[in-house]
Amino acid sequence: MSAVLSPIDPFAAVRPGRYRDALVDVVQGPAAPTGALRTPSFAVWTDREHVHLSHRLAAGEIDNDLAGRVAAELFAPGWLSGSELFERLVTGIVVSSADEPLAAWENFYRNTLTRLEELAWPGNGPSAAPEAGPDAGHVEGSLAEYAPVYAHARSLVSTHSVLELGSCFGFFSLLLAGGHAVTASDVTANTVRLLARVAPGLGLALDALICDAARVPRPDRTYGTVVALHLLEHLAEEHGRAVVAEAQRLAEHRVVVAVPFEDEPTAAYGHVRTFDLDRLAELGRASGWEWSVHEHHGGWLVLDRP
């Protein structure tokens, strides 16, 4: 089904408070029909054409914790499945949360960045980052899980210019944008265009680039540091190796790779393989650069140009 669907349009509101595409129909507020599946946050039902979702989330609840909430309440129990459906439902919840899509996304981004700053730098410094790991009681994929990853990644960036590969929504790039020259890149065109439209409204400046992380249209050594945070688990092994090689080509000084540690790939997030420190070390040995691996809320590979 996903092969014939049009790409997700983050601005596709059919009316205020409603998002609808070829697969999902998401509304804010209306009561669900009898027989709908009900969870603490959502009501879900299906017909021959759509998965319908109704929610009553307030503006202050619209941040990237939606991903963890949708995964925990609807996908982990097995009610729904598939990364395509997951991404469209999250998009629909955001777009349906305000009268105008751009306003909805700006609210989503502001809430997310504010929460990440509170979690990762409660004292306005990376040294204050909390140790909120997978056993800290939060939902997998939540901001509490990502905040220490972003804090640690920032501590590993020592150059002014930074390229993020596979930036998705671009939260890490935006967190760096105030003090670095940042380029965010992703293969999903509409996600990159969304980031480019939202950033000015947040008072932040960055470049947004649409490309495969293994084929970036920039010269050698363009960036001081290249980062790939939670990207390789989405890619087949050969593609992942090509991404690391491309990061080395583009980096003047350092490449930083982060991956989650999972027993099984999380399908709702589009993960296709798992990692451990030994697999990261294999990438390090093959790089020809100085390298190290360590564990901190997942696994890390740091490559430094000799």
Rank of each mutant, 00 (worst) to 15 (best):
M1P: 10
S2G: 15
V4R: 14
V4T: 15
D9P: 13
A12M: 15
V26T: 06
Q28K: 10
A31W: 09
P33L: 11
T34A: 11
G35N: 10
P40F: 12
F42D: 00
W45Y: 09
T46A: 15
L53T: 06
S54R: 13
H55N: 11
H55D: 07
A59T: 08
G60S: 05
I62M: 02
I62N: 01
I62Y: 00
G68E: 01
R69C: 02
R69Y: 01
A71K: 04
W79M: 08
G82T: 08
G82A: 11
G82V: 07
G82M: 08
F86N: 01
V90W: 00
I93D: 01
S97A: 14
A98E: 02
L102I: 14
A104T: 06
W105V: 03
E106H: 07
E106F: 07
N107Y: 03
L113N: 04
R115M: 08
E117A: 13
E118A: 11
E118V: 09
L119E: 04
P130H: 12
G133L: 15
G137C: 12
H138C: 06
E145Y: 11
Y150P: 03
R154W: 02
S155M: 14
S161H: 03
L163I: 09
L163A: 06
C168T: 12
F171S: 05
F172T: 02
L175P: 01
H180L: 07
V182G: 03
T183E: 06
T183A: 12
S185C: 12
V187Q: 10
V187N: 06
N190T: 15
V192Y: 03
V192I: 15
L194S: 08
A199T: 12
P200G: 13
G201V: 13
L204A: 11
D207F: 04
A213P: 03
V216N: 03
G224Q: 05
V226P: 01
V227A: 07
V227Q: 02
A228G: 10
L232G: 00
H234N: 08
A236Q: 09
E238V: 12
V243D: 00
A247K: 00
Q248K: 11
L250W: 01
R254E: 06
V257H: 00
P260H: 06
P260C: 10
F261L: 11
D278L: 10
D278G: 07
R285N: 04
A286F: 08
S287K: 05
G288D: 05
H294D: 09
L303F: 05
